[in-house]
Design a protein around this nucleic acid. Structure first.
Length: 501
DNA sequence: AGGCTGTACTG
DNA sequence: CAGTACA
DNA sequence: GCCT
C-alpha cells in the first residue's frame, strides 16, 4: 500500500472525520512526535474563506476514545505548534471514485473523501445496500449474475493501479484489509450481495484489530469466519500484494459509473443499472432523467452536501434545535439524537431523532406539528417523505417517521435528518434500534430469535405456535428501558458507545 | 441446502 | 410487489 | 461466503 510520509514539508493532515483515525493510540503518538496536525477539513475551508490561517484547535481530529466529546468541544488546548508557513496538503494517489469508498455511513471519514471533494472529483460514499451486477445483460437470478461477473472478469484484462486510500489507519495489516474492505464495498454495492459483504467486513475488521502484522495465511488459521475462499484470496494478496479479481473489477468503467450512481441517495443497484443501460454516465446526465422519483431527485439536488459528514460539534447544535423545538411544543417530551451520534462518534453521516411522550397520548400528531414548526423556522428544507396525507398510523404501532434535510442558520451544509416518533411503550425499543449500530442490532435480533422472540423497533414479541403456524405474538413484552430489553435477552447492558460493533 | 434482522415508505 | 432506506 |  502507499505509505504516506508525515515528514516535513507536510504540516497538516486533513480528513472529514476521525473515524479512520479512531483506533487512535498510534495516531495520537504520531501527532505528538511528528510536527503534523490532524484536522477536520473545515479548517482549510475556513482558512481560505478568512484569508488567514485559523487556529487549529477547534478543528483537531485526534481525540481520546474515552473523551471524544470533551476533546472536540475544548478549544483551549495548546499542544503542538507547527510550522504553518508551508501548507502542504497530503494528497494520496486517487485512481478514481471507486478507490474512495472505504467508508460506511459511520466508519468513514477517511482522507480520500476530503481530498476528492477539495480537488473537485466526485467522492464516493457508500449507502446502505448493494449494487446490480456488472453484466451486460440483465439476468433473472442474482446468482447467475455474480457467478458470471466473477468468472468473466477473473484474469481477463489488465488491471489499473489500485492505490486505495488508507493513510491514517493504525492497523498493521492494511496490506490485506485494504483489499478486503474494497471487496466489502463492491459486494455491498455493485455486486449486490450483502451477505458476502458482511463476511468481508467481519474478516477485515478482525484482521485490522490484530496487534501483529500478518505475513502468512497460517497465522489466520484459528480466526473464525475465514473459510477456504477468503484464505485463498489472502494468500494471493500476501504473495503478489494484490488481488487480480479486484483489479479487474475496479478497472471496469461500468463499475465506477454504477458506484457513482449508487452514491446518490435513493438510487440503488436496480436504478443505477437502469440508468446505465439508458446510456447515462454522469450525475449531470441523471439530472435530465424525468423518471427519477422524489428521493433520488433530492439526492441529486443535495448530492455534495449529503456526502459530507457532520462533525460532532455541529451535530450537538442540530440536536439542540430539534430537542428545543420539541420541548417548546410538547413540554415533557422525550427527544434525543440517536444513531452514531449517540454512540459517541466524532462525526456522523446523518442525524437521527427518536421522540416519544410519557403521557402516552401526545405522540399522536406530534411529528406533523414538529416538522411544520421546524419548517417554519427554516431548519427543515426538504422532506424526503410525502407527508401530504398527514401522519400515518401504520398498523397498531402508531410510529411516525420523517426523513428529510435540514440546515442550521448560517451553516455550510444541508444535513440528512430522520425523525421517528413512538408511543411511549415502544420508546425503549425505538431507541435501541436507532442507536444501533446495524451489526449490533442484527446480533441482538439473532439472539432474540434463538430465545424464541422477535425483536424489532416496536417491541419484543414472544414467538407463538409451532411448525407451519409459527408466528409472533402481537403483544410485546413490556420494557421500560433499553437495559430491560437487553436483560430479557440475557445480555448485560451496553452503553451506546459500546455498541460500535 | 438454506439462513444470514427486521421494518417502513414509494410508485 | 420491487426497490430503497433506516439502525 | 461462511456456518450448521
Amino acid at each position: 500500500m502507499p505509505t504516506l510520509s508525515l515528514e516535513p514539508p507536510v504540516t497538516h493532515v486533513l480528513a472529514s472525520g476521525p473515524d479512520r483515525l479512531r483506533s487512535s493510540a498510534k495516531a495520537e503518538d504520531l501527532e505528538r512526535h511528528s510536527c503534523v496536525m490532524f484536522l477536520r477539513y473545515e479548517w482549510i475551508e475556513d482558512s481560505l474563506k478568512e484569508g488567514k490561517l485559523m487556529p487549529p484547535d477547534p478543528y483537531r481530529l485526534i481525540v481520546h476514545n474515552t473523551s471524544i466529546e470533551k476533546s472536540l468541544t475544548s478549544s483551549t488546548t495548546t499542544t503542538a505548534t507547527v510550522a504553518v508557513g508551508c501548507l502542504q496538503m497530503l494528497i494520496a494517489p486517487i485512481a478514481g471514485p471507486q478507490k474512495l469508498n472505504h467508508k460506511g455511513k459511520e466508519e468513514s471519514g477517511a482522507l480520500g473523501e476530503v481530498v476528492s471533494s477539495m480537488i473537485g472529483k466526485e467522492g464516493k460514499q457508500k449507502k446502505g445496500r448493494g449494487g446490480e451486477s456488472d453484466s451486460e445483460e440483465e439476468r433473472t437470478k442474482e446468482e447467475d449474475c455474480r457467478g458470471d461477473i466473477l468468472t468473466r472478469y477473473l484474469g481477463t484484462t489488465a488491471p489499473a493501479a489500485a492505490d486505495a486510500l488508507e493513510p491514517c489507519s493504525t492497523s498493521l495489516n492494511t496490506h490485506i484489509t485494504r483489499i478486503l474492505w474494497e471487496l466489502h464495498d463492491l459486494y455491498e454495492g455493485v455486486l449486490d450481495d450483502g451477505n458476502r459483504a458482511l463476511i468481508y467486513r467481519k474478516v477485515a475488521s478482525e484482521i485490522d484489530k490484530l496487534s501483529y502484522k500478518v505475513t502468512s495465511a497460517s497465522q489466520l488459521d484459528k480466526m473464525e469466519g475465514i473459510g477456504q475462499s477468503t484464505r485463498v484470496k489472502i494468500k494471493e494478496i500476501l504473495r503478489t500484494g494484490k488481488l487480480e479479481m479486484l483489479e479487474v473489477l475496479l478497472a471496469n468503467p461500468k463499475v465506477s459509473v454504477l458506484q457513482l450512481f449508487m452514491s446518490v441517495w435513493g438510487i440503488g443497484p436496480k436504478t443505477a443499472t437502469e440508468m446505465y443501460n439508458r446510456g447515462y454516465r454522469t450525475l449531470e446526465d441523471l439530472k435530465r432523467e424525468s423518471s427519477l422519483e422524489r428521493m433520488p431527485r433530492l439526492g441529486l439536488k443535495y448530492y455534495a452536501d449529503i456526502l459530507q459528514r457532520i462533525p460532532r460539534v455541529e451535530a450537538v447544535e442540530l440536536e439542540k434545535v430539534v430537542v428545543g423545538v420539541a420541548k417548546e411544543l410538547y413540554p415533557g417530551v422525550l427527544a434525543q439524537a440517536t444513531g452514531s451520534f449517540r454512540r459517541g462518534k466524532a462525526s456522523c453521516g446523518d442525524i437521527d431523532f427518536v421522540i416519544s411522550h410519557p403521557d402516552g397520548n401526545s405522540h399522536r400528531g406530534l411529528l406533523a406539528k414538529l416538522v411544520a414548526r421546524l419548517t417554519d423556522i427554516q431548519f427543515i428544507s426538504d422532506g424526503l417523505q410525502d407527508r401530504s396525507r398527514g401522519p400515518q398510523a401504520p398498523g397498531h404501532y402508531e410510529v411516525d417517521t420523517y426523513m428529510g434535510l435540514c440546515k442550521l442558520q448560517g451553516a455550510r451544509h444541508y444535513r440528512r435528518i430522520d425523525i421517528k416518533v413512538y408511543p411511549i411503550r415502544a420508546h425503549p425499543f425505538g431507541l435501541l434500534h436507532f442507536t444501533g449500530n446495524d451489526i449490533f442490532n442484527r446480533r441482538i435480533r439473532e439472539l432474540a430469535k434463538k430465545k424464541g422472540y422477535k425483536l424489532n423497533d416496536h417491541g419484543l414479541f414472544p414467538t407463538v405456535g409451532e411448525g407451519q403456524n409459527i408466528r409472533s405474538g402481537t403483544e410485546s413484552i413490556p420494557c421500560a428501558t433499553e437495559r430491560e430489553i437487553l436483560e430479557k435477552l440475557g445480555m448485560p447492558y451496553l452503553e451506546p458507545h459500546e455498541r460500535n460493533w
